[in-house]
């Protein structure tokens, strides 16, 4: 077991353990804060894979944006913090639906993992990943990039519209 393996398992344990708390916890605040550690662990794995830009984006968007909004939503909702959530299995229908969605999701992930020809990253860090990512976003992947920006703009306008309607 070399150093990279040790670091990988360190982050993997953090991710799995905190993700388990997210799912199993009966207190919604615990779930929300536990998600913080999951995101952090994923960012750590990205750094380990030499994908420093993705790691920072992960921190900025998931931790700095999405999770803050979730926690805001939870904190601003009265009486939600003391609420007991149902986390166990309560009926046969849930067994079926849960099992099916797990199978579909897991199957898709395993299929994609096996069918993609993965790019092996060189062991020496490349000089600047940021420049390469920026260049390909504005040349090869311009259309998806612009489509995503239009989608985000729509979401933003929609959010502002809903917030303003009093």
């Amino acid at each position: 077991m070399n150093l990279v393996d040790i670091v990988f398992y360190f982050f993997a344990v953090i991710i799995v353990a905190s993700a388990a708390v997210v799912v199993l916890s009966k207190n919604i605040m615990y779930s929300a804060f536990s998600l913080l550690f999951t995101f952090f662990g994923v960012a750590g794995i990205y750094v380990l894979l030499n994908a420093d830009f993705i790691a920072v984006t992960q921190l900025m968007i998931y931790i700095g944006g999405i999770l803050v909004l979730i926690i805001f939503g939870v904190m601003l909702t009265t009486k939600i913090t003391g609420l007991e959530m149902k986390t166990g299995i309560t009926g046969k229908a849930q067994y079926a639906i849960g099992g099916l969605s797990t199978l579909v999701l897991g199957g898709t992930l395993i299929y994609v993992f096996n069918s993609t020809s993965w790019f092996k990253s060189p062991s020496v860090p490349t000089t600047s990943t940021v420049e390469a990512i920026g260049a390909s976003l504005l040349t090869n992947y311009l259309l998806p990039f612009e489509a995503a920006s239009v989608l985000l703009l729509l979401a933003m306008i929609g959010a502002a519209l809903i917030a303003r309607r009093k």
Partner: peptide
């Protein structure tokens, strides 16, 4: 490489 982006990420944490 990421330079200043790290500072922005950390302030958001």
């Amino acid at each position: 490489n990421i330079g200043f982006l790290f500072v922005l990420a950390m302030t958001s944490v």
